[in-house]
Design a binder for these strands. Sequence first.
RNA 1: GCCGGAGUAGCUCAGCGGUAGAGCAGCGCACUCGUAAUGCGCAGGCCGUCGGUUCGAAUCCGAUCUCCGGCUCCA
Length: 635
Amino acid sequence: MIRVTLADGTVREYPPGTTLGQVARDINPRLGREALVAAVNGKLVDLSYGLGEDAEVRFYTFEDEEGRDAFRHSAAHVLAQAVKRLFPEAKLAIGPAIEGGFYYDFDVPRPFTPEDLEKIEREMEAIVKEDLPIVRREVSRQEALEFFAARGEPYKVELIRELPEGAVISFYQQGEFVDLCTGPHVPSTGRIKALKLTSVAGAYWRGDERNKMLQRIYGTAFPKKSQLEEHLARLEEAKRRDHRRLGAELDLFSLQEEGPGFPFFHPKGMVLRNQLEQFWREEHYKRGYQEIRTPVILNRALWERSGHWDHYRENMYFTQIDGVDYAIKPMNCPGAILVYKNRLHSYRELPIRLAELGLVHRHELSGVLHGLLRVRCFTQDDAHIFMLPSQIKEEVIGVIDLVDHFYKVFGFNYKVELSTRPEKSMGSDEIWEVATRALQEALEAKGMPYKVNEGEGAFYGPKIDFHLEDCLGRTWQCGTIQLDFLMPEKFDLVYIGEDGAKHRPVMLHRVVFGSIERFIGILTEHFAGAFPTWLAPVQVKVLPIADRHMEYARRVLERLEAEGIRAELDARNEKVNYKIREAQVQKIPYMLVIGDREVQESTVAVRHRAKGDQGSFTLEEFLGRLKEEIARKAF
RNA sequence: GCCGGAGUAGCUCAGCGGUAGAGCAGCGCACUCGUAAUGCGCAGGCCGUCGGUUCGAAUCCGAUCUCCGGCUCCA
């Protein structure tokens, strides 16, 4: 007998050759139904795997990432099988599981149409109904190459050729369909109860734009219909929260044909922006930052010196003034450096923290523009810290704390990543090594968990990135901290040390919001447009019920305005229900309903957008609470 | 930039070779109303832009711009 140790530590015995599927059913029928794949001694395998010796076994269901990935990966195979049935000439590329679903890339003579997608989906459902067993088979490299060469699958042949020497090559077969795959897979196609193809798009073979463009079909799959429906509902919710849609509905900003990627901020969007900037200034002044502003257009020679000309030119815009070449700034650092260099600095002054809400322009490819999240001009809440080498750790920690404070004010969770030297970069390995280690040490001193992104740093230095997580679990890069030993070198920055000699300062680039525009986009989606009162473009709407309440309503409005509250009066000749609905749709935090009773008693009837009717208050009482809520930045 | 899709009234969309439509929003009138849409009326469009086919184009074809979904890239 074979001893099988389960995840909970229990040990069971089975005759040799017992499959994992049988073990799962033996443990309990429900696990038998729900298990999708398993791990034997930590290695992922199919349920058809037959046990040969004592082993630790763990089962995975759709609730586990391992199970979900195998499930979606199997769904991708079903997709490929359906496509091969309907379009035998299609060449198979790759088809992995991804966050929330799967895709498969095909090389086809003509792109898929939405109608094709429907047909393919129906064929997939047929394949599921056929409940074909998914069978693994290990083959030799020779056999694999011959098989796919004979089937006319050049991409598979390429993949096999590139497998390392001695790699186990396996095929997975379901009915007539065979794919090269390491697996594991679910036991049969019948497991994929609920599936949907969501979109079709072009994608380069191996993600390289020099390669051929393939057709990628995206889809998602679940073990239960209800889960698929929930998933689709979540997508609907995401659409409802889309900042582009809310931005238009709430009249915050617009994007116009006349300036693709250059957002227009409307009065209500400007209120948001100004609140964010005011908060930002307060917090920075508290922490010893000084604010500067540097020009948008600067001489080309400056950009050549900074290295942008060599490393960032394709993202920059250029112009000429009196026949001389100038560039529109894509970053604020050279400007800040010129401010630093404008006079001599003593070691006693350091660190010097120069903050700038700097408007930068970058040429982004037309296809990547996306509302406020991806634009061609944006305002970085930048700062450049010039410091002694001995101050690095402390300053980095200071910025980490600042970022943490900011994100907490908005209720964001975030993840931290450390990006190292990219291919296209300047400076010696040694400098990069020192800078990267400094960032690492600061993170470790804070006890912050982080992920390393090899080769994702800026061209002048490694960076710590902060990725905000929104309410739907998507992440966005916002804050970054970048350590830079190179610019000080290039620009010959110095400070006078204790010894009276010139020394080289270290420079740190950092942003907290990242870009004000992007941050507003994320905030809009995060709060679904219902901004906390301190940010709300309109904080209070006064709603008189009938004409005779207008005069009192006006007095209420004036009082609110005198207290610095952003208030509006709905003086239109409409029913109060109508006015309330409109204020709700505009997501205004407070509505003050004014009728006979309120005029009579000198009160206001307070309605909150989420909590509903709050009853009557005197205006002063309401004001007190409101101001307290604003001061607390409650959300 | 590349692949696919889409551009019709402020917004959401119908019309898909034969005189441009609806709902909402807007404006006017009536109603003076108590916590998410009162009724009636009016106005509003060179059907993204340019070119072609046709007796005739929102509709068919081509180009171009913008947007949407991806790829690649990034704050």
